[in-house]
Amino acid sequence: MKKDWRRPSTGTWRTRSGWKTSPRATTSLIIRDNTATDKSKRYTSTINPYMEIITTPLEGCLIIKPAVFPDARGYFFESFNEERFNEQTGLKVHFVQDNQSASGYGVLRGLHYQQGEHAQAKLVRVISGEVLDVAVDLRAGSATYGQHYSVLLSAANKLQFFVPRGFAHGFVVLSETAEFFYKCDNYYNKASEGGLHYADPALNIDWQVPADQLLVSEKDQVLPNLDKL
């Protein structure tokens, strides 16, 4: 069965006082089975006993939904298995570096990428808390160049987001605190760093946090807009 995993067109976001609703459309993902008959709005998914692979409108960006095995003691799940991951996705990815960060509500990190031979693919997830994770297609010649996709990642839903090489990536914390973890298939290289401004009007990203409550580094505040890359 194919499932529609998108958040409905009336978006929601978390503030310190609770959840709020907006008429603005969003492509964020939530865990829900939508039985709408419009097949054009559905995503395809591939399921095995260990994980479900869900495609997105941006080719190569994938949602990974691991199989979780709960019992009286708690739960267990396999967070990553290279052989199974490559078999299910059809990719040949070998991750070489793991990174982890801790942030508070409203902290926005991004949008970042590495260029040339140091480009990185990432597999990201949240260990505690909740974030909105965003990928922007910067692949030259791509039919979706300049478009973005966002997904809600949390310790509760245990989803992972695979971001291929050629994308800018960033996230914002929606919970009081969050621990963010990601795998990279290439090592960090400072000379190859690139970035895109998180508030570029051409991207029109709904970060689901009021602008006056965002906490962005000085470095990220001066990143260029898409038309300056």
Rank of each mutant, 00 (worst) to 15 (best):
1 M>W: 04
2 K>Y: 11
2 K>P: 06
4 D>M: 10
7 R>Q: 12
9 S>W: 03
14 R>D: 12
15 T>G: 11
22 S>H: 09
26 T>C: 10
30 I>L: 07
31 I>G: 03
33 D>N: 15
34 N>F: 06
34 N>D: 14
34 N>Y: 11
35 T>I: 11
38 D>N: 13
42 R>M: 05
47 I>A: 04
47 I>D: 07
49 P>Y: 08
53 I>E: 07
59 E>H: 13
60 G>Q: 01
60 G>F: 05
61 C>S: 00
64 I>H: 06
66 P>T: 05
67 A>N: 03
71 D>K: 01
72 A>R: 02
81 N>C: 13
82 E>C: 03
83 E>C: 00
84 R>L: 12
86 N>P: 04
86 N>S: 01
86 N>V: 00
88 Q>S: 15
90 G>T: 04
92 K>T: 10
93 V>L: 08
94 H>I: 02
95 F>Q: 14
95 F>T: 10
96 V>T: 13
98 D>I: 03
100 Q>N: 09
100 Q>F: 05
110 G>M: 11
115 Q>N: 10
116 G>K: 00
117 E>T: 09
121 A>D: 04
122 K>P: 13
123 L>C: 02
124 V>R: 01
128 S>A: 08
135 A>C: 09
136 V>K: 00
137 D>F: 00
141 G>S: 10
143 A>V: 07
145 Y>R: 09
146 G>R: 13
149 Y>F: 15
149 Y>P: 01
150 S>E: 14
151 V>W: 07
155 A>E: 15
155 A>Q: 11
156 A>Q: 13
156 A>I: 08
157 N>F: 09
162 F>Q: 01
165 R>P: 02
166 G>Q: 00
167 F>H: 05
169 H>F: 07
170 G>T: 07
172 V>T: 14
174 L>W: 04
177 T>D: 06
179 E>Q: 06
179 E>C: 00
183 K>Y: 12
185 D>M: 03
186 N>A: 06
195 G>Q: 06
197 H>N: 14
198 Y>W: 13
204 N>V: 01
204 N>L: 00
205 I>V: 15
207 W>Q: 08
211 A>R: 12
215 L>S: 15
221 Q>Y: 10
222 V>E: 11
224 P>K: 05
